[in-house]
């Protein structure tokens, strides 16, 4: 009985949130890794571009809501998602045309491109704040829960409840579908294969007649789709606020590097490693252990490894450890 309580407690506060957060990070890291391996720079504008795509989704969601359009139990935002992806793709392609292309053409060192992405970050950041403002925006509608904590508690006769938000389930389902689709695209289609060839060896790819412009365009479109979906899922699950999207940069970078930069499987693995480390290390195990051990051994303290104040420091510590011990990442990405 108490073991069941302990498991429920752990699932409710660690496993379920960690799974959803990990999927969100994985999608973000996937975008970073894609841009990195094909365009060859660390995109600092990633978080703010996610915010841009999500913003478009939110605005459209509000519009749909005002028209009375809805998806029933599912959030209306899903309906707006394709349009948000298209808008962000256009924005990213415009940024590429006016900013990044020049540096590719003059063969500038990668760090120049990184700096240019900081400039794009600034501009995007400003745009998002001017258009939708710097505050929290709620755009979740439909059924909020699949399993409610109170209902679960009563139904199972336990002390502890388990809540599963529909946004969490949605995140995991969409992330899996997206990853399958992406891998199919990269491994089975002609364009996907040419992208991989381009990433492996740019010169060889050019020699074999692959159009670099097409590869770049497709890369931005896919990255924009990943960003918008990751951003929207994060916003649905938690909340949308431009500044938090900027702050997602560090965990997303950490996920990409930990998994092995340039390696899509690594990015997904990295996302879950970072997310579960953050949640497990900052969780206080007092109640969990109290359920498991005899009363006399029940812990006095909180049994918390690291205060939640340092939650995001976890991703940085993992990053540093990986850089020290295995700079190529867990899955052996490429390191120049």
């Amino acid at each position: 009985m108490d073991v069941l309580n302990a498991i429920t407690l752990f699932a409710n506060f660690v496993f379920v949130p960690g799974l959803a957060y990990g999927a969100q990070l994985a999608l973000g890291a996937l975008g970073i890794t894609l841009i990195y391996s094909i365009l060859r720079f660390a995109n600092f504008a990633h978080g703010d571009q996610m915010a841009f795509g999500t913003m478009v989704v939110i605005l459209l969601t509000w519009w749909f809501q005002s028209l009375g359009v809805s998806l029933g139990p599912l959030p209306t935002a899903l309906l707006a998602l394709p349009l948000g992806m298209a808008a962000l793709a256009l924005y990213a392609l415009a940024a590429d045309k006016f900013v990044y292309r020049h540096y590719r053409e003059i063969k500038a060192p990668p760090i120049r491109l990184v700096m240019a992405s900081v400039g794009v970050m600034f501009v995007t950041n400003g745009l998002v704040r001017v258009i939708i403002g710097p505050d929290d925006q709620a755009f979740m509608d439909g059924e909020r829960f699949i399993v409610r904590a109170g209902n679960f508690r009563r139904a199972m006769g336990l002390n502890e409840g388990l809540a599963i938000k529909s946004s969490q389930a949605l995140t995991v389902v969409i992330a899996i579908a997206l990853v399958v689709a992406l891998f199919w695209f990269l491994n089975r289609t002609r364009t996907g294969k040419s992208m991989r060839a381009f990433s492996d060896n740019e010169d060889l790819a050019l020699l074999s007649g692959i159009s670099p412009q097409k590869v770049v365009t497709v890369t931005w479109i896919i990255a924009a789709a990943l960003m918008t979906i990751a951003g929207t899922l994060y916003g649905l699950d938690k909340s949308f606020k431009p500044f938090t999207y900027f702050q997602l940069l560090l965990p997303m970078f950490a996920a990409a590097i930990v998994g092995g930069v340039g390696n899509p499987v690594g990015a997904i693995l990295g996302g879950f490693v970072v997310a579960f480390s953050e949640v497990t290390i900052t969780y206080a195990y007092k109640k969990f252990l109290t359920y498991l051990v005899p009363e006399s051994l029940a812990p006095e303290g909180l049994m918390q490894l690291l205060s939640t104040d340092y939650k995001f420091a976890v991703s940085f510590i993992i990053l540093v450890v990986v850089l020290l011990v295995r700079p190529t990442g867990l899955m052996r990405g490429k390191v120049i």
Binding site: P17, D237, T244, K286, K287, F288, Q304, S307, T308
Partner: peptide
Amino acid sequence: EDGKADYSAEVGALAAAG
């Protein structure tokens, strides 16, 4: 911290105290 999107870790720790 103000301005975070997600407070589940904070709430988890608070709840653990009993």
